[in-house]
Design a protein around this nucleic acid. Structure first.
Lengths: 211, 211
DNA sequence: ATCAAGTCTGTAACTTGTTCTAGATTAGCG
DNA sequence: CGCTAATCTAGAACAAGTTACAGACTTGAT
């Protein structure tokens, strides 16, 4: 929320007219809708273009690849989620609990549209260097959500590392669940497990006799 | 190393003749070689087939998709690594150190062939349900490597969860490094951070007054 | 209102993963 | 050896992501 608005999610290079904004939105909606139906494979560029009412070439002008499109779709969804989560902040007593609660809430949201989750997460981890900026934006959004839940304004490097590890676990656990190799219960356990790292890296303010 | 040899890496359905074994090996070598050159994209099925001296249809009979092929390639490489690692076990005093050391050793090995690593890891995380058994085998191999480093014979559920989280972090950190979004130093820090979970889940044998 | 530059459309072509087919080869067996 | 089923080969064909291009439409500036 500070000055890092530069790469927020619109490169801002050309300001985009109203019609263009509308096209972009139609594309993202079409993408999300197709993804929600049949997952990654169902998001076919020709179909997205048709559903959004734009030509294939235009679709590619807005999103230079299917991966870019799906990562942008994820950005979009994450933004929704972030505002939704802010409305009812987690109630846990300590940061670890609150983060686990937040992530599980997000997880439940994803469970409602598993195919969409599949498409987005697969795209995210499959993205190569050419999508780095966009993936980074998603990562920053996720970090913001986690830090929000922690209630930490100025995280230490060690806390940031813990947050990164939590994100790693979050993505990877999601994938194992989506591909049917882990149960929901297992994901829950893993998230709770990794969240313990937060206590471990807390900057020992005053109470809590650790070791 | 016990009785779970059943799904080791050969489905054992038809025992495979010598020539077939040789074909399979040629294919895996070709795959690894092409991957080492140009990463995921350079592993093109027609090229693999040609390099291995088999027809395209045959390649598909052995590995039903590019993802299957690359995941099998990873199995293969992991097996090498496992035996290599066993020759010189990690020297650290406590389990967390040893695991971190082992993973960093593996990481350095991957750094020597970053393109190969890219191809294998991308395939692994992109794999869908149809590849679950193979991905699971890779996962079991990784677990075995980590448990070896821990020196833990009979892990508790809580320890297994920690190991899963470590694997999640390992894969995901690898991806962020491969796509240029994290430095080697950051990967190191994240691995060391997540390895602290091992101490946290140790079954408190006698010393260590926690809380 | 007019012109130039930039966008958008429709469509075809190209690439690479995947499938299919017809005809050779090979393996196992009597 | 000679037969049969399975396997392998070569090559065409198909699918979906991506690129290319000619012509129509918008936009912004004069």
């Amino acid at each position: 929320m500070t000055a890092e608005n530069r790469a927020d999610h619109r490169p801002a290079s050309p300001p985009l007219t109203e019609r263009q904004e509308a096209r972009r939105r139609r594309i993202l909606n079409a993408s999300a809708q197709l993804a929600a139906r049949g997952g990654f494979d169902a998001v076919q560029m020709r179909e997205v273009a048709e559903a959004a009412g734009v030509a294939l070439g235009t679709l590619y002008r807005y999103f230079p690849s299917k991966i870019h499109l799906l990562v942008a779709t994820m950005q979009d969804q994450l933004q929704h989620m972030h505002t939704t989560l802010r409305k009812r902040p987690p109630a846990g007593a300590d940061p670890a609990e609150r983060v686990a609660e937040t992530l599980m809430r997000a997880f439940r949201a994803l469970q409602r549209e598993p195919q969409l989750a599949d498409a987005m997460v697969r795209a995210l981890t499959f993205a190569d260097r050419s999508v780095s900026p966009e993936v980074d934006t998603v990562s920053r959004l996720t970090t913001a959500i986690i830090l929000d839940a922690m209630g930490t304004e100025h995280p230490t490097p060690s806390q940031l590392s813990a947050v990164r590890v939590i994100e790693h676990t979050w993505h990877s656990a999601l994938i194992t669940w989506l591909s049917g190799r882990a149960s929901i219960a297992q994901v829950k356990i893993d998230i709770e497990t990794v969240c313990r790292l937060i206590d471990l890296t807390a900057p020992a303010p005053a109470p809590e006799p650790a070791r």
